[in-house]
């Protein structure tokens, strides 16, 4: 019983972190139609800055600075590079993010090298015990913080002028532009927000019981791809649902690996993709994604 509870909690915590990353994907996709391949390196950048700065500034100040810096870098990618190109050629923009990812990732992996960096988070390895199962505080923190942050982002979508503009722009670019919405500014802000979310996600991805920040941490961002697709790339609540599904699936498959040994070792890492394929067979636009309207 307690193992099942542990696994479920693990899955939800993992899902909440994926949700931060997947929400970033969805925001960028809604605002610019781009699949952001540079997300992994943005995540790594946020984690790296926190790791380097926390000894001098303390954890919270370092995290705030890292989130801000990552947001600025993400915004700069849009402002300096993507804005020069035709916004309708989304495949070119997508490949451009690959170029950014290669350059940024190379620099970060060179700096990190073979090291294992600690982010100095206040929860450390502390645990609580509830009815026979041990729960690391980092898990609880990640769920709580993700809930708060995602709630704030959803509130921003719903209630702020920026959120309204973003939704309008995603609905119909031309009409939005005609209504006086500055598409460029909306897009740059969307990139900033996605960068900030990625930097925040880095903290919980590398916190206990994970060993720490290493150069491969950025690859975890890729798991948020199936999460975002599964829920529907155009739907923020879908990203949330997809992330939870992916997180729980991964934890379940990893937790019951002995029973699933027929599928080969380490199937937990690829289970999200298998689930995604099955869902796409039944619902080609994801669980909550809008069905594409075809205009003739």
């Amino acid at each position: 019983m307690s193992t099942a509870f542990d696994i479920l909690l693990n899955g939800v915590a993992l899902g909440s972190v994926y949700a931060l990353v997947a929400l970033g994907f969805v925001i960028i996709f809604k605002a610019s139609g781009v699949m952001n391949f540079a997300h992994g390196s943005l995540l790594l950048l946020g984690g790296y800055l926190t790791a380097v700065l926390h000894e001098r500034l303390g954890f919270y100040a370092a995290l705030a600075l890292a989130v801000l810096a990552t947001a600025l870098v993400a915004g700069a990618v849009d402002l300096i590079l993507l804005r020069r190109l035709d916004p309708h050629a989304t495949h070119v923009l997508t490949i451009l993010t690959i170029g950014v990812d290669i350059a940024l990732m190379t620099d970060l992996t060179r700096r990190i090298g073979g090291d294992l960096l600690s982010l100095g988070d206040p929860w450390g390895g502390s645990v609580s015990t509830f009815g026979g199962s041990t729960v690391p505080h980092t898990r609880i923190a990640s769920i709580v913080v993700s809930l708060l942050v995602i709630g704030a982002v959803f509130a921003a979508f719903r209630f702020t002028a920026w959120g309204l503009s973003l939704r309008a722009a995603a609905e119909d670019r031309e009409a939005a532009a005609l209504m006086g919405i500055r598409l460029h500014r909306i897009r740059t802000l969307a990139w900033c927000l996605a960068g900030a979310l990625a930097a925040l996600a880095a903290v919980f991805l590398v916190a206990f019981p994970a060993p720490g920040l290493e150069r491969t941490t950025g690859e975890i961002a890729l798991k948020a791809f199936p999460a975002a697709i599964l829920g529907g790339m155009t739907s923020p609540p879908g990203a949330l649902l997809g992330s939870l599904l992916i997180g729980v699936t991964e934890a379940l498959v990893a937790g019951y690996e002995a029973e699933l040994s027929a599928l080969g070792g380490g199937f937990g890492d690829v289970a999200p993709y298998a689930v995604m394929l099955l869902v796409l067979l039944a619902r080609p636009n994801g669980l909550l994604g809008e069905k594409e309207a075809i205009r003739v």
Partner: peptide, 16 residues
């Protein structure tokens, strides 16, 4: 983009 990520799944499942 859905097809893009669906085919991405092929790569990971294939490597597995």
């Amino acid at each position: 983009v859905y097809l893009g990520v669906a085919t991405l799944a092929l790569v990971f499942l294939g490597q597995h």
